[in-house]
């Protein structure tokens, strides 16, 4: 067992973990963050995407011991219990989700992209949006609503100043 200290969704916590424990499992079971979903456990579907020091990473390809001292954010921290982040709201209004299992991974993977486009005040082409989500698999929506949600989130934030993020 190895002692580590992580900052998870703004709260610091120390715990002892076996080195082989995947960050995804530790977030789910030690921190109770059920929004981290495991879709393949071999880095090929994007469901488990979280932010480590602000950068999207697959938590099934990361060992918790590697995250000593790092700040981790999961979907739970993004828009609160009412899912108020502009991208979450756009997923809802554009029907970017159905069963919801892949959704937190898409949201976490796409937030930096949406933020970058918003700060550049640039509406990307659909191809660029699709490339940005190419590491995430959705089996329900056919991606159509997710592409629309990204466009809407960027458009709304450029037009109306940013929602909370």
């Amino acid at each position: 067992m190895t002692d580590i200290t992580l900052e998870v969704n703004g709260t610091e916590k120390s715990l002892a973990v076996e080195p082989r424990r995947l960050l995804a499992d530790v977030l789910r079971h030690e921190f109770g963050l059920s929004g981290v979903h495991i879709g393949c456990a071999h880095g090929a579907c994007g469901c488990c995407t979280v932010h480590i020091d602000g950068v999207p990473k697959l938590s099934c390809l990361t060992f918790a011991v590697q995250c000593e001292g790092k700040a981790i954010a999961t979907v739970e921290s993004v828009g609160g219990p009412n899912a108020e982040h502009a991208l979450q709201q756009a997923f809802k209004s554009e029907h970017g989700l159905q069963c919801g299992y892949c959704t937190p991974g898409f949201v976490m993977a796409l937030i930096p992209f949406v933020e970058a486009m918003t700060s550049q005040r640039r509406m990307p082409e659909d191809d660029e949006i699709r490339e940005a989500m190419s590491g995430n698999i959705c089996r329900c929506t056919g991606y159509h609503g997710i592409v629309a949600a990204v466009r809407k989130a960027i458009g709304d934030q450029i037009a109306g100043g940013s929602n909370r993020s």
Partner: peptide
């Protein structure tokens, strides 16, 4: 009508099978 189930699915509050302990 926008979906009522979306908030829990988007916020991470949904409970799938592996969330049952």
């Amino acid at each position: 009508v926008l979906r009522f189930e979306d908030v829990r699915l988007l916020s991470g509050a949904a409970r799938y099978l592996d969330d049952i302990t």
